[in-house]
């Protein structure tokens, strides 16, 4: 059934009206954009983790990612669109959901039947979004300025130093650690949940859930380790 669904995505024109205006269509769109961001996160983590072992390799990969036309002009805009789409859709759905219960309960025991993380995705997501603002301010805007505004000469060896310089500031490291904590909470529910949203609930679901939970713990912890590693090294 699933294979038929995804085969149809490839060969048939999307019925865009029902897939973006219906509750299920939006939910699927939210899940697919989330899964796309998980793939990106894995790639980002892999490159960052290399910085722990090899300054040269990190510089080489960063230079490639920063100057390859396919990455810069095709993949990067897709990624930015994915991020913006995910958070706008998240807020749209949250507003719609709040409208579906006009009068609130006097007593509502949410913890009796659902986890805290699953009920507060909007808040963990909002923290991650705020973190993205800081992250862009730290790395993306200076990078865009270097390459496309000031058009400074190519320097394949600057990336490692630029990154470690940022992690010298302990306040920034604290903010990064807190943000990755919220990222872990967001992924803890969101990653496994996105499979349910696209219709996967079968004999593999338990293992998918275990993998998603492991991912939501290991990847943010890894990012925290990288930030602390470079901070301690810079002391």
């Amino acid at each position: 059934m699933l294979l038929r669904v995804y085969a149809l995505i490839l060969v048939r024109k999307l019925n865009t009206m029902s897939l973006t205006s219906s509750t299920i269509g939006r939910k699927v769109a939210m899940a697919l954009s989330g899964l796309f961001l998980v793939v990106f996160l894995t790639q980002h983590f892999t490159i960052n983790f290399i910085s722990v072992f090899s300054e040269n390799t990190f510089n080489e990969i960063s230079h490639f990612m920063g100057n390859n036309p396919l990455v810069q002009f095709i993949l990067q805009p897709i990624l930015i669109f994915g991020v913006i789409f995910h958070f706008i859709m998240g807020f749209v759905l949250e507003i719609q959901n709040r409208k579906s219960r006009v009068v609130q309960y006097n007593m509502y025991k949410g913890s009796a039947n659902a986890s805290w993380v699953s009920r507060n995705m909007i808040w963990s997501g909002a923290v991650v979004l705020s973190f993205l603002g800081l992250h862009f301010y730290d790395f993306w805007f200076p990078e865009m300025n270097y390459k496309y505004v000031e058009i400074l000469p190519l320097d394949p060896n600057r990336y490692y130093e630029e990154m470690t310089h940022k992690f010298h500031d302990y306040l920034r490291v604290i903010l990064y650690v807190i943000s990755f904590g919220f990222l872990a909470l967001h992924l803890f529910h969101g990653f496994a949940s996105s499979f349910q949203s696209v219709g996967v609930n079968n004999k593999y679901s338990e293992n998918i859930k275990k993998f998603a939970i492991a991912f939501s713990v290991v990847i943010p912890l890894g990012f925290i380790f990288i930030a602390l590693f470079h901070h301690i090294n810079s002391l």
């Binding site: 669904v5 048939r12 269509g25 699927v28 349910q196 219709g199 609930n201």
Partner: peptide
Amino acid sequence: ARMNREYLYASLKG
């Protein structure tokens, strides 16, 4: 999950 699959399939089938 089954309804989501059914809905996706139905939407794409048109």
